[in-house]
Write a protein that binds this DNA or RNA. Structure first.
Length: 548
RNA sequence: GCGCCACUAGCUCAGCUGGAUAGAGCAUCAGCCUUCUAAGCUGAGGGUCACAGGUUCGAGUCCUGUGUGGCGCACCA
């Protein structure tokens, strides 16, 4: 972010001041108040103590030693307790615009992840019904993180852990079966106590009845299995369709089932048992987590012979490691936080590096309408599904709302605001900026106004133009920050700043109607803005409309 | 009882490695469309950054404690 020539000049100055190992202490930051300039060097404040000098004195002496190209720097000054402030010239920013423009359509992309493999696992909802809002948040976060890493040049696999082997599947089968029998006239056929009460179970049961008639009587193991497969398939199809409507397409659907069929569960048990990390007690198999530094041992195979969720989770992570990923990202809801240490301990016990696993925990979503919380209850089956939300407010709004808040905070989804197809809706602010730019180029074309991109930019000088360039040149670092912090919200916030800077520029500076060379220079500025917005929205999975 | 997350304007939230006067949107009020899309722009009001200590030249940001709210702490996933 700090231009190289500035960094170099400061480094030289500090060295000739007698500080040969200044490297790590050469610190720049962006002042909040633009009056202070573009960059502030805080090094004098940091080294004052060990030099036993006042920071201001150091700063003033350093400034005398700094040698900079005067055409690129307007002002260099010592302010406050000892900041060295640098204000770059308009010409510098004009040159920057040319540089950004030359990078081309894919501005923002980098190769720094080249050769590295990343696995992003997200959604991973149990195939026992429809996706709800929490899954929606998970899906949007995961998908955008995958996009971010792709833009950084990583080889990204988008993965869904298909949880089709646990107790919840038997519960699903029983729930469907009960509804099926009730449909066949046995109104009082017992429904499982903790069964899935949602309306959709009736729907599945109806389809089941259409396919099988009354041939699934009695309630046998075989018939329940049919119900399970039927319900699983139904759910999977629905889930996939919902994700597709959000423009989410995953590469790998990893079946939990396969861990059993392929003997992976057993392999993990024998590895752990070779390392003496498992033992039997009360008829169950325990994982000696206490030997790995955790508080308590946990059951991994129940006395009934079925594994608990921990075992397949560990086996699954082992598979991911064996597939050779450099980074393994798990996107999980806050309710899964407790499982993380166990799985990581398992990974470590199996000889893999747990620091390669990045767990992204997002907090819950509450739905509000006019400020009042919309109650959702799993028990009654009254849930607001992701599908309903998408059809009500549209995919772009859904994606943006789920991404515009930091992953670690609770997200309040205000339905009325989301429904608002007006200026109040924050997603339109970004899209509108993009559409406005598209419109400028359309109008120019219609009027036969040409844009000459080859001249060097050197006439932009209003604060609105310069400010926009300043923001545009920070796009790549915002992508990185967003990716490495696993926070798509950082990018969303950044794009909002871009849109604000553009709207102001648009209002203050005319493009069509300007004379050359300003005309082409402003066109260039609009073009780079359009690329940043387009690429940024693309990463967030939101459409960039040519018209609104 | 223990763990994780949060607490910033009336509401919803930003605030990156600690920096110089704490920001945005919504809401309220006042302006701006014969000129590239007013889904826009400009301005005003609105704050003890939950509370109390600590570290530091400097704390919304780091540490400790307290309070409030959310989510967990199964031989459920």
């Amino acid at each position: 972010m700090v231009p190289e020539f500035i960094e170099k000049a400061f480094e030289n100055a500090f060295i000739s001041y007698g500080l040969s190992e200044i490297g790590g202490k050469l610190v720049f930051e962006l002042p909040k108040n633009p009056e202070f300039g573009d960059f502030a060097c805080t090094t004098p404040l940091l080294i004052a103590k060990e030099m036993k000098k006042k920071p201001r004195e150091i700063a003033e002496e350093i400034v005398k030693l700094i040698d900079l190209d005067e055409s690129l720097v307007d002002k260099i000054s010592v302010d406050g307790p000892g900041f060295i402030n640098v204000k770059l010239s308009n010409l510098f920013y004009c040159k920057e615009l040319d540089r950004l423009f030359e990078i081309g359509e894919r501005y923002g992309e980098s190769r720094e992840g080249a050769g590295k493999k990343v696995n992003v696992e997200y959604v991973s909802a149990n195939p026992t019904g429809l996706l709800h809002l929490g899954h929606g948040r998970n899906a949007c976060i995961g998908d955008s993180i995958a996009n971010l890493y792709q833009w950084l040049g990583y080889d990204v696999t988008r993965e869904y852990y298909f949880n089709n082997a646990g107790k919840q599947m038997q519960n699903l089968a029983k729930s469907i079966y009960a509804r099926y029998r009730q449909l066949l006239g046995e109104e009082n056929y017992p429904f499982p106590e903790d069964g899935y009460a949602g309306e959709y179970i009736w729907e599945i049961a109806k389809l089941l009845e259409q396919s099988y008639g009354s041939s699934l009587i009695p309630e046998s193991k075989e018939n329940l299995e049919i119900c399970q497969k039927f319900g699983e398939q139904w759910s999977f199809d629905k889930i996939k369709a919902t994700l597709h409507s959000l423009n989410i397409h995953q590469d790998v659907y990893f079946n939990e089932d396969s861990l059993y069929k392929d003997g992976k569960i057993q392999e993990v048990i024998s590895i752990l048992s070779d390392k003496q990390l498992v033992y039997e007690k009360d008829g169950a198999l325990w994982f000696a987590l206490s030997k790995l530094g955790l508080a308590e041992d946990r059951v991994i195979v129940k006395s009934s012979g079925e594994p608990t969720y921990r075992l397949p989770d560990i086996a699954y992570h082992r598979e991911k490691f064996l597939r050779g990923y450099d980074i393994i990202i798990d996107v999980l809801g806050a309710d899964h936080i407790a499982t993380v240490p166990d799985v990581l301990a398992g990974v470590r016990a199996l000889g893999f590096d747990p620091s390669k696993v990045k767990v992204v925990i997002h907090q819950f979503v509450t739905l509000t309408e006019n400020g009042a919380q919309v109650k959702m209850s799993k028990r009654s089956g009254r849930v607001y599904t992701l599908d309903e939300l998408i059809s009500e407010v549209g995919a772009d709004v859904v994606r943006f709302f789920f991404l515009m808040r930091s992953v670690s905070t609770h997200l309040e989804f205000e339905l009325n605001l989301a429904r608002e197809q007006s200026e109040k809706n924050p997603v339109f602010y970004l899209q509108y900026a993009y559409a406005r730019i598209a419109s400028i180029f359309r109008t120019a074309k219609e009027r036969g106004i040409a844009f000459n991109p080859n001249n060097k930019t050197e006439h932009l000088n209003t604060p609105h133009e310069i400010n926009l360039i300043k923001i545009l040149r920070m796009f790549p670092e915002n992508i990185k920050l967003s990716a490495f912090k696993f926070e798509p919200q950082i990018l969303a916030e950044y794009l909002n700043d871009v849109a604000t800077a553009f709207h102001t520029f648009y209002h203050e500076c005319r493009i069509i109607g300007s004379n050359e060379p300003l005309l082409s220079e402003r066109f260039k500025l609009a073009k780079v803005t359009q690329r940043v917005l387009g690429n940024g929205l693309n990463i967030l999975g939101i459409n960039a409309p040519e018209q609104m």
